[in-house]
Design a protein around this nucleic acid. Sequence first.
RNA 1: GGGUAGGUGCCCGAGUGGUUAAAGGGAGCAGACUGUAAAUCUGCCAACUUCGGUUUACGAUGGUUCGAAUCCAUCCCUGCCCA
Length: 405
Amino acid sequence: MSVFDTLKERGFIAQVTHENEIRELFDKEKVSFYIGFDPTADSLHVGHFLGMMVMAHMQQAGHRPICLIGGGTATVGDPSGKTDMRKMMTDEVIAHNCECFKKQMQRFIDFSDGKALMVNNGDWLKKLNYIEMLRDIGPHFSVNRMLTAECYKQRMEKGLTFLEFNYMIMQAYDFMELNHRYDCKLEMGGDDQWSNIIAGVELIRRKEAKAAFGLTFTLLTTSEGKKMGKTEKGALWLDPAKTSPYEFYQYWRNVTDADVEKCLALLTFLPMKEVKRLGSLQDQAINDAKKVLAFEVTKLIHGEAEALSAQQAAEALFNGTGNLDNVPTIELSEADFGLKLLDLLAREGVFASKSEGRRLIQQNGLSLQDEKITDVDFVLSKELFSEKSLLVKKGKKKYYRLVIA
RNA sequence: GGGUAGGUGCCCGAGUGGUUAAAGGGAGCAGACUGUAAAUCUGCCAACUUCGGUUUACGAUGGUUCGAAUCCAUCCCUGCCCA
């Protein structure tokens, strides 16, 4: 089966510029293709993960992924966030972020022997001479046409700065540059990148009279159309220091029924037959599919050992089997006894604020060893520790283990 | 540069001198129900609190007033129209 069909079958593909040619291209040569990542944080998140899955599938089929890190674009600051201009990032920070990205990507993408490349567009964008570039590629862009792009349409009402308008041109330029340097023929990206991608494809076709292609993949959204991968704390990070493997596991364990099949297809390498079987489970049985999903995705990101630990912790908490060692743990020192539980948990970040914690307790949302805590002033005493750890439950399914250090 | 409409809590959006920590909706959180699901219903949703309150908040800064998100001045930002 060709990769194209694999991607299609698994539901990755949203739009393609030239379906037949791309299909043919995939069959007859090793294609260099690229996906861009903006190094705006020191960790990738699930949004990026989808792109990496695409790269992994492609690499398995013998093609060459190029990870383009937007070091150049990040120095400018992408204004799409609007309200406040993103702070300019220093080269050191960007370099650091790139390193972090690479480490995380290495788990899925094989960078050895040039089987995949990682490049930074700062290498060429920063050297650009404005006049030269303008004369060079400016004539190939029609403003009239650019303005009809879907991504700008909505912005026409809200306001659009030149900086932002210019983004498409920079991205198109990137594609052309990669085409020169590495014979990169295909740009991929999330479906929101469609306009930017075709800008690059057209630039290469017009200016170089060479073939270039674009393909976008489905954005990871819930069945309600909301962006997936949001937790109460923000993004679902791939860095275990930012999102623990347990939290990560729980996120996937809790996706809604309707999203299970889609997630399995996009975020795991399970054969489609199995994906379909699991996705078709009904009612209680679909919980098994969610367990598989959570385990597989956690394994891909954090490795099998961590996935097993997370799974065990979950089993221990929700089924009462297995040990609790891997449950998120808060270590207490002698000095903590005598503190109000509320203060302690607020300090540890379990509650965003004391008010929130107080509210939660008043609403019966907190329990200690399965006993509801109803007293806001409940004090943590050493006598409570008849066993070596105490289990705190916040809300319906968030657990923390208190242990004496 | 001129004219004009605006800038309200996480987001959208009402509010034109006091009863407004600010309607309504969305998001989020908690409780009930369940399958660690969805839907539904209920409550909460600035921070701190000795639970009586206190302190911050309606673009920014000053001012008028017993009292301002609401009035005035200046400034910053955005849309639209004109140049």
